[in-house]
Design a protein around this nucleic acid. Structure first.
Lengths: 230, 230
DNA sequence: CAGTGGTCTAGACCACGGT
DNA sequence: CCGTGGTCTAGACCACTGT
């Protein structure tokens, strides 16, 4: 039982959960008891079980102890790459075309999303991302210039707003949502698909503390699927 | 500088990254130096920076030291709840209707996905999930009976296969993909939407080690959006 | 080879929250 | 109140991996 790493402890705990030695809902031994049983320090057990708790397989509460979760909520994590990198990772050649760029008051839904006054002038950028010369993804973005100093003079014809913002602003958090939309006429023309086609769409807003940076809607060409492992 | 918790260290590191005191690409001080500077143990610094590295903001390599990531890849995590819980969390009343259930050889795409022989008999379950009596999500699932002992006699009219599997099998991993599809006639009828409507779809395969458990396709009603925070 | 992160230990104190 | 997990410490050894 020598050389008990936290990974080994975690693996053993996982085994017991899966083998129902620790059935769902059951309380498992103390960190101290486990440490003694497995021949390692309590900190090592803590490290192992903390991750399992974060993964949703265990529930830990002071005094109440550690219990096996009744309904293990699986958590998946996926990366949000720069679109160019996404295309490259598919083995295709990325391309980029700036469609339009203007400073204008944002429409109500956008300014509401960013919690800005309705008439606040935002930078509106629309661009098309290409993979091997074919339309890949349509980007429709509103940027709060106050949160992105320099963006008004940035050259967004060669570098996407996405990339510029990642490199030049410090954002702390945001929201994402995924859904499906039917292609309207304009979108269909740009993406080279039929009007009404089912398209995958990602919406994202990002913040620097309480200050809104940008709201973006990415509409992908037909057949696009986002993949990840759990 | 007393009472330096790992959260405080992490916050300070984040601040320096955002303030460009540690600009993108720069090498930051050793754990030991930071510990001395901030007045805490090296383990505390390690704990703080490890999380930032996992989040993609830092890159850590032995000997090479710790560097601020050039292109911070944002990682989002989202939970994969049991559909019933998803509906409940929206403040709606979940409902469930088993549509069909049969033991049959899986079609080629499914058996290939699960890496099973083409003629392997799988349990095919189709069900409709309701929210406040309205169609919410269509579930089309193939289950490997060998990996889910007891499923053949389970009563899937009151509990969804999803829920039964979560409670009765021990899965270790899987894949997920998201996309958009146009509703075919059958799907449209069941979900109460127009044929051709853009629908959000989640595909998932899960495994117990090398043994495939189930492949499922969830097709959500129009307008559904999956949300999460980063 | 040597510097740096990764991890383990033994002990300590603290914070939360059931009883 | 007091058991349990959460965290900090000081020191040690190990495992990569650039040089």
């Amino acid at each position: 039982m020598a050389a008990m790493t936290w990974q080994a402890v975690q693996a053993e705990a996982l085994r017991r959960i899966r083998a129902r030695e620790w059935p769902p809902g059951a309380r498992i031994p103390d960190e101290e008891d486990l440490a003694r049983e497995l021949g390692c320090a309590r900190a090592t057990v803590n490290r192992a079980l903390r991750d399992l708790a974060e993964a949703g397989l265990l529930e830990r509460r002071r005094k109440a102890g550690t219990h096996v979760a009744l309904t293990p909520v699986r958590k998946a994590t996926f990366e949000i790459p720069i679109i160019r990198q996404d295309i490259e990772s598919r083995g295709q050649t990325p391309g980029y075309r700036l469609l339009s760029r203007s400073l204008a008051p944002a429409p109500a839904p956008v300014s509401a999303l960013l919690r800005l006054p309705a008439d606040a002038p935002l930078l509106h950028v629309r661009a098309l991302h290409l993979a091997d010369e074919a339309p890949f993804c349509l980007e429709d973005r509103w940027i709060n210039p106050a949160a992105a100093p320099g963006v008004e003079t940035a050259d967004l014809t060669t570098i996407s707003a996405n990339e510029w913002l990642v490199r030049n602003t410090a954002f702390s958090g945001g929201d994402i949502d995924f859904g499906a939309v039917a292609a309207d006429a304009g979108t269909a023309a740009l993406l080279g698909c039929a009007k009404g086609a089912a398209l995958f769409e990602i919406g994202r807003t990002t913040w620097a503390g309480a200050q809104p940076i940008t709201a973006v809607r990415l509409t992908y060409g037909p057949g696009y699927r986002m993949r990840t492992a759990i």
